[in-house]
Design a protein around this nucleic acid. Structure first.
Lengths: 197, 197, 197, 197
DNA sequence: TATGAATGAGCATTCATTCAT
DNA sequence: GATGAATGAATGCTCATTCAT
């Protein structure tokens, strides 16, 4: 009646896990975490409520898993290891990669941004995101100094703001400025913000 | 003793309305709109649940009222009238005013920013915020062109991102960079982003 | 400031009492007792909530007062005293009076009919309506017998049903049958229902 | 043990649905729709509040379902199809069926009658009851004319009132008149109300 | 693995009633 | 007499979570 096929289990688990995470991400990004019910997720995913709880201990765990997965994916592309200084082309490459990440996973970043605004939810996720952010900031600071900036602290502030704002615009209104030009313009501006003697 | 307490009623209403709005703003900013219950608000405000409904028809109305009030307060300081071009000092002044608004009403702007990320809640508020935003963008564009920019569209993109990012940092992590320097640095950077021949 | 005029008080009390009762009757008949709030009544009457409670101890008391007043008014016109037998014309007159009462106070009778269907509310009112009903039934029974009916019990059943049904139609759909004809037709039918040898 | 309990689910759903409807009908009839809380229903049915909402979308839907079910049951027994004239025995049969319906489902008819008195609730149910009522009235009118009545309109008024009143008595005070005699007496009276030359 | 019936605490909202003025 | 701010229990409804199958 219920023929247990022995080793496809793992495949099924992986597929179902992905299905749940994808569905939940879509809904969380669209409606918000608290406004999305378990029912919403299971109905949209076409599975039963019980099944979701076979894969995740709670709704909070689903969120944590989404954030962890997305966050890892985003930073896996980035080489933050070592204390090597970044050359100009590497910085450009770095920015391209982060912009691409936002373009390719807009839902994840939309959710992530909404989360960052709500400390209450942040606790659920308990991200050590500040650690990564600090590392990146360090890289930029070193690069700015290496470039011969006469006010590296100030330039870091400006460049950080510029990039944060660009990401925000990309997330909330990706079509606000014309497509291709946007990223190049921002990257260009980054370099212009470094004040040389 | 004498039958009617004439228009102390009005005073009471105004005070209580303010108490409710202030309390709600604090909680909404802290925990989010949906995560804040009417009970939370009334308990913190020290009033009964019923009383809140004497002053506001619904939780949605409380939110609308907060946004309307805060939004009006923020833009009342700004002179968007007329089609006059802004001079350099006026731009500086404009930026100072908006930064001050964020510094003085951080809770409001935190709530506002969180709201902008959640279209479902935006519908509750039905803000025509884009209209104001467009006007401001127009002012900046004109200023950039007047300043002799050789690529005004690009410069507008960069400056918009820079300011948006700066506000975001001010809202989410006001102590991230040293106090005084931050605003001046951003304003300075704005001008540096205008590319002259 | 608050010139107490001494003896118009009673007049004011009477007017206000009537205003409240009339307003409440209208709303109770329209929306039902439980669906009508004290706020509805005071708003429509143009008075404050507190004032209503100056005149009536509770919402239940308002209902009781309405029923008592309306009931008394209806039965004051009817001469149920004594054990005198009714003649034919007197029966006709009796029926005309009751029909007129329904026609002239449709709201009261609508409310009354709705009440009779809900024992829970009946307890609020604790009417001794059955007493009056029994007296009237006795009058009809005597009349039917005097008229020479060969099955007075049966005729009483039929006539009671007929009159009850007619009243119900008058209350729920007063325009269902053409105006004038209706009452005469019912009264006529009453007499035809008495089975003579 | 085997994964899925196939369609016992359907059985459970049917039983629970019936339990809820029966319990709700009893309470609605007894206390009225608005005076019966969801808590009342679930407590009496021995289920949780949440479960009721698994079966019905709202309290209104429970009422609608009760009325629809009861109404269908009542009219399923009646043959209103075709334009065939009713013979005498058919009219008798028709009346017996409707009387039996009231006797067997007194709670439903009590609720139904109370509803008809409250237009606000009628809107919840949106019954097209008038349509059926008109068809039945047409049948009676035709029968009265076929019987050779000299004033069919008047006779229809009287007979309609008589039957309405009889039903009302049966609903509100089923023991008021002796059991068996009542129905026969009313049916008899119907025929006597047809005025022949 | 997979289902969905079942639970109950929690939420927004309503409303009769009280009371200081 | 008259006002309306204030209360809090109760209501309809939602939803994360559990569990028997």
């Amino acid at each position: 009646m219920c023929p247990r096929t022995s080793e496809q289990f793992e495949t099924i688990r992986q597929e179902k896990t992905k299905l749940i995470l994808d569905t939940a991400l879509e809904l969380f990004a669209e409606k918000g975490f608290h406004q999305t019910s378990i029912n919403d997720i299971t109905r949209k995913a076409g599975i039963s409520k019980g099944l979701l709880y076979n894969y995740f201990e709670s709704k909070d765990e689903v969120l944590k898993s989404i954030i962890q997965t997305g966050y890892d994916a985003a930073y896996d592309n980035l080489d933050l290891s070592g204390d090597h200084k970044l050359a100009s082309e590497e910085i450009v490459n770095f920015l391209h990669i982060t912009f691409r990440s936002v373009r390719e996973n807009p839902k994840f970043w939309k959710l992530y941004s909404a989360l960052v605004m709500q400390p209450e939810i942040l606790e659920i996720v308990k991200m050590e995101y500040s650690q990564k952010a600090l590392e990146i900031q360090k890289l930029f600071y070193d690069f700015i100094r290496e470039s011969g900036s006469i006010a590296p602290e100030n330039d870091l502030i400006a460049i950080s703001s510029l990039i944060k704002g660009a990401h925000l615009i990309l997330i909330t209104a990706p079509d606000y400025f014309q497509e291709g030009k946007f990223e190049e313009t921002i990257i260009d501006a980054c370099f212009r913000l470094i004040q040389k003697s």
